[in-house]
Write a protein that binds this DNA or RNA. Structure first.
Lengths: 222, 222
DNA sequence: CCGGATCCTTATAGATACTG
DNA sequence: CAGTATCTATAAGGATCCGG
């Protein structure tokens, strides 16, 4: 393990940083939050990472048990990386980091974002507004060629995954990742995006409004 | 700003990592969680950090608004570093990292820990067990020469700071940071430490038991 | 085409010494 | 006390190449 550089402390925070605190490590993990990915998927999602660094991080993260490698069955050859159960428990860390970063007074937080990241923002910030009654619904969200399904059960975000809901959804949304990001960030109302022809809804628009209302990011600290 | 290396993404997680993801940055912030510290305090708390790196991190973290420098008033010359309000909002990040790291199946999590870190573990893991009725109490904890005060109000951890409670406490605990760590980690019961002469309690021992019971760390994932 | 490994360059961290 | 200067050791960045 060449990444043997350690903080050498008994503190659990320092220990976590020993495991996932190196450059790129958490972003690699982030890319696996919605499921297994192959090496080339990761390269595409993180265009700025050097292949040597990606290889090294994958080895390190596998060695400490955050992710595992899995060979695909013959029909679809290749190998993928996926989070272990313990790796998936980094979710609260992502939540906390994203909430803090979203409140950053430093910069307008611009730059490119993947479709996965936009959808994950929904998971990160999902917190049903108080005083609203819980609802349940299944959503299909189509961002360009990417498809996602969302399940809300009794006001809680029950699942969020790539792919369409095999059993059909109550609401189908068709838009781009940019518009969807703007809608979730409350930079544009759903109705406005629909009126502008940038977003199509099939099913009850009220259910979509509820979803968007529940996913509002926190205000900036600046 | 020489630390201009950025992930260049619009994702709030990547943005957070741009701000506090560099080596040592979060550990420097951790050392300020209980209040202002001078440069030499930080060096003592983080013996492995090079002075050049410490200087650089302090500059970077000040530049982005996580901490500020403050000159002390004439009687006690010198300068200190302290978290800004926004920097203090990293608390949930520490909480999540500490909880995840505490469940690490990788290593027994050994090494040296500062008194501050042990006390912060209490804040990190404080979560009153369900079914217990809320209580209120003020504690003074003396670990060697370090003194801390803890306030629990109606079952919630209302404050945790360096120094003694100027108005007196309901319970005074006198021990070492090692024993206190073991007691909080439930590696040793309070009564056992008292019987072994490693821990002294003034006041109601039941109040101390409640505090310790509320601060249990999560079990390992291994 | 996928999944990396190699090679070389540049940036950052580590270690030690020293100064306003 | 609060850092800076200097030097070395690692790790990251970037381009290219290779085997299955």
């Amino acid at each position: 393990m060449p990444g043997k550089r350690s903080y050498g402390e008994g503190c659990p925070i320092a220990h976590s940083l020993d495991l996932v605190g190196e450059r790129w490590a958490l972003l690699v993990v982030r890319e696996l939050r919605l499921g297994a990915r192959r090496y080339s998927d990761l390269q595409e999602a993180l265009p700025a990472i050097a292949p040597t660094v990606l290889s090294q991080r994958l080895k390190d993260l596998e060695a400490v048990g955050v992710l595992r490698r899995r060979e695909l069955e013959p029909p679809a050859a290749g190998r993928v990386y996926e989070l272990t159960e313990w790796g998936a428990e980094l979710e609260p860390v992502f939540r906390a980091l994203a909430r803090w970063g979203a409140r950053s007074p430093v910069v307008p937080l611009s730059g490119q974002v993947s479709a996965d990241s936009v959808m994950l923002g929904l998971r990160t910030f999902f917190a049903p507004p108080e005083g609203h009654e819980p609802w349940s619904a299944r959503y299909d969200v189509l961002l360009g060629r990417e498809r996602y399904r969302i399940g809300v059960e009794r006001g809680r975000l029950a699942h969020l995954a790539r792919g369409r809901d095999p059993e059909g959804a109550d609401v189908v949304v068709r838009t781009t990742k940019e518009t969807w990001r703007r809608v979730l960030a409350r930079e544009e109302p759903v109705a406005g995006a629909v009126a502008a022809g940038r977003l199509e809804v099939e099913g009850d628009p009220g259910l979509l409004e509820r979803l968007v209302a529940a996913a509002a990011p926190p205000p900036s600290a600046g």
